[in-house]
Design a protein around this nucleic acid. Structure first.
Lengths: 255, 255
DNA sequence: AATGAATGTCCATAATATGGACAAATAAGG
DNA sequence: CCTTATTTGTCCATATTATGGACATTCATT
């Protein structure tokens, strides 16, 4: 396995293994992990043992592995110390109330975005399962909004690195088309996504800018297709007001 | 540095570094990390680079490091579940050991609380409570602790909705008195309950705070009256340490 | 412009992680 | 109940990796 950074192969491998456990549908057994990771038995044992020693995973009574409390604790801290999430909360609630639809907040991590908040259109008590979900740049409203707020050259670089996977039957998988969309987003300041990330759901997305005018996050208003009847204006206007407010709180000053 | 598991020194070191970052009051600079970790400059750079490459940390515009959202993605599955119980378990066991008494963990459900965990003390003592039992706000240690951690206005709203039922001959059924108790809890950070929920059992209660500083749960240390001989300090100090630890794991940062 | 401090990188070497081979435990078959 | 097959777990010589002293670069200060 290649290490993205020189001198960290074992760390990279171990985190990759943690990711496999995290992405599994059900808590995996040793044999399943051996299969999916392609690691040799002794290596797998050592990596699992070190993950367990650090409390990042736990071995259940049936020998299968699940995420450990240490990881949960770290993740909660990561959420808590995220300034954008804190500064955006109030505005997102308002956007939800104004549109009556579900609102997402996503921040970049490597070549993807990760949802760090979700305000449901109906009140829900427990933490939404979408928080922490990775979402591709090319197939989501937040992704395309984010691309459109990047410096053109950087956006092109990033687009070149994307896998352009087909998520739904509506997903655009053509880089040239994505570049054109990105250009349009740059002009409009928002994007409309037609079921490219989830069948039956359309959304409007826009990016939040930091004090340097660079995109720091993106938000989207998701609407079930059957309910998508209001004029565009009714979704876009509150959305643009919302991102303007949050960007301002982040220190952005429109020039 | 010794590695807890053979053949994982570098992983262990890197996670330890991640932990240092997570425990810092404010996002640390490179110099601060060099100081606190004791690592040499090149090693520190490599470990930070690999953490950043994996998205586990992020370098802010002021060069300081903070936890990355990839952690949220890795912990997604575990975050969605009700994880307070898991996060608290270890700390509750410690509290039981330190006080030698039975410890309860309760979360809110409408205008009541529900016990979601109970750590029994060594000596078998008959106590009515079991996991899943509902417990009133006004007559229990956990309930009054929870009220005292709420925003004053919200607490008053909630008190107005309570039925103030007489549970034992000691139960206070006066809302005005409950308001006064709530105010005291707010100042003290804990509450003492004298048999208001169960005859012959007194308890000390305190609330667990989430990342927004709002109460997420409450814990209590219950003591049979005949054995309640130690000074208050001996119960309260471990209790307060315990809630501080759990709150911190939930993402709460004392300001 | 000169000096000092902080930040960043290189690379020979020491130390670690690796995985083939072996052992133990468990399940299947006679 | 014993033998064989399969799965689970461990050891350790070796190759590969991570390490940190030394050096280079950048930035701040005089």
């Amino acid at each position: 396995m290649k290490a993205p950074v020189q001198g960290t192969q074992s760390f990279s491998r171990t985190i990759h293994l943690l990711d496999l456990i995290s992405q599994s549908k059900a808590p995996p057994s040793l044999a399943e992990l051996k299969e999916s990771s392609g690691l040799t038995r002794p290596t797998l044992y050592r990596l699992l043992a070190s993950l367990e020693a650090e409390g990042l995973i736990e071995q259940r009574s049936d020998q299968r592995y699940q995420l450990g409390v240490r990881l949960v604790s770290l993740a909660r801290k990561a959420l808590a110390e995220n300034d954008i999430r804190r500064l955006a909360k109030e505005q997102l609630l308002r956007l939800r109330d104004e549109t009556g639809e579900t609102v997402h907040l996503a921040v970049p991590s490597r070549e993807e975005l990760i949802y760090i908040d979700k305000i449901e259109c109906e009140e829900v008590v427990r933490m939404a399962s979408t928080i922490g979900t990775r979402v591709p740049m090319h197939s989501s409203g937040v992704g395309k909004a984010y691309l459109g707020a990047m410096a053109p050259a950087e956006a092109e670089d990033l687009i070149r690195q994307l896998d352009m996977a087909q998520i739904t039957s509506f997903t655009n998988t053509d880089r040239t088309v994505l570049s054109a969309i990105t250009q349009k987003v740059r002009e409009d300041g928002y994007v409309f996504d037609n079921q490219e990330n989830e069948e039956g759901v359309v959304c409007y997305g826009a990016a939040i800018l930091d004090d340097m005018g660079k995109p720091a996050a993106a938000i989207s208003v998701s609407i079930p297709l059957y309910r998508h009847t209001k004029p565009t204006e009714q979704y876009v206007k509150p959305l643009l007001t919302c991102i303007a407010n949050i960007s301002q709180r982040l220190g952005y000053r429109p020039s």
